[in-house]
């Protein structure tokens, strides 16, 4: 995608004529951070798929039963609406199950969904510890801490990201806000809050799972029923994070993706790269 060599690179004075100039790289992500990052993909998928199947057994969002169908589940209503209005879904066999058939393991499989959820949840907790170990060993944790001035900078970054497609379409100049840290303010906000959300999902999960032995934990989230609501919306937080996260990493280029797989990045000094791009 982009040149493997930073634009400011100058060849090594010791190199011979026929030798490639060396590249400057930084180790951006520790191996444990990279492993836990990618393990989150199957684990979160497993947790969400089984979680929505568990949700089916007793939906949080209910209304009075429909006099005709007897349906009381808002998620089932959405499925019914999709089957009625989305082309190609008109002949779907069981409209109330549409959401669960497409976004979970399926309806009516609570027992197996619980088994998968426990398996993924224990692995997710272990994976979280691996991530924290990687942050400490790779000394990456400091880059995630939000700065005092981040709110304004994050809004500037947000404005920049929103404007990029428009600027590309109209061939206008659209300057990347300058920063000289590993992450920009919006990235810091995101990469700091997602592990916090992971921790909170685990905490609310335990509050729902053991509401008697850990009743203080359930009380911390406002009781058993409120902890279920927390747990449900924390799942959405991951989904809301993942979508722009994946779009932006592809927009940002190969170097960023490679740094999460290989660990090394040739963007040794971000501010320099940005200055050159401008």
């Amino acid at each position: 995608m982009s040149s493997a060599i930073p634009p400011h690179h100058e060849p090594n004075p010791t190199s011979t004529l026929l030798v490639e100039p060396s590249v400057l790289v930084v180790k951006r992500h520790h191996i444990l951070v990279r492993c836990s990052h990618w393990l989150n993909v199957p684990l979160l998928l497993g947790l969400i798929l089984s979680g929505i199947s568990i949700y089916w057994a007793s939906p949080i969002y209910q209304h009075k039963p429909d006099p005709v169908t007897g349906n009381f589940d808002v998620a089932a209503d959405i499925g019914i609406w999709i089957c009625a209005h989305v082309p190609g879904q008109h002949h779907y066999a069981s409209p109330p199950d549409w959401i669960y058939n497409h976004m979970s393991l399926g309806p009516g499989m609570l027992a197996v969904a619980l088994q998968l959820h426990w398996l993924c949840a224990y692995l997710f907790m272990l994976n979280g510890m691996v991530y924290v170990a990687g942050l400490i060993m790779g000394r990456g944790w400091r880059s995630l801490l939000p700065h005092w001035a981040d709110l304004f900078d994050a809004l500037r970054m947000f404005r920049y990201y929103l404007g990029v497609p428009f600027a590309k379409l109209t061939h206008r100049e659209w300057l990347h806000p300058p920063f000289n840290t590993k992450y920009n303010a919006l990235q810091r906000a995101a990469y700091f809050s997602v592990p916090v959300a992971g921790f909170l999902s685990v905490a609310t999960g335990w509050a729902i799972h053991k509401p008697m032995q850990l009743h203080w934990l359930a009380a911390l989230f406002g009781g058993f029923d409120a902890a279920r609501v927390w747990h449900f919306w924390l799942m959405w937080l991951f989904i809301f994070f993942v979508v722009p996260h994946v779009i932006l990493v592809f927009a940002d280029g190969w170097d960023t993706l490679r740094s999460m797989i290989v660990g090394w990045s040739t963007k040794v000094d971000r501010s320099e790269v940005i200055a050159n791009e401008q």
Binding site: S22, V26, R28, R142
Partner: peptide
Amino acid sequence: EQPLPIIDMAPRVL
């Protein structure tokens, strides 16, 4: 935040 140590590397290694 501390700056990351910069490594000089042959492209073929990368």
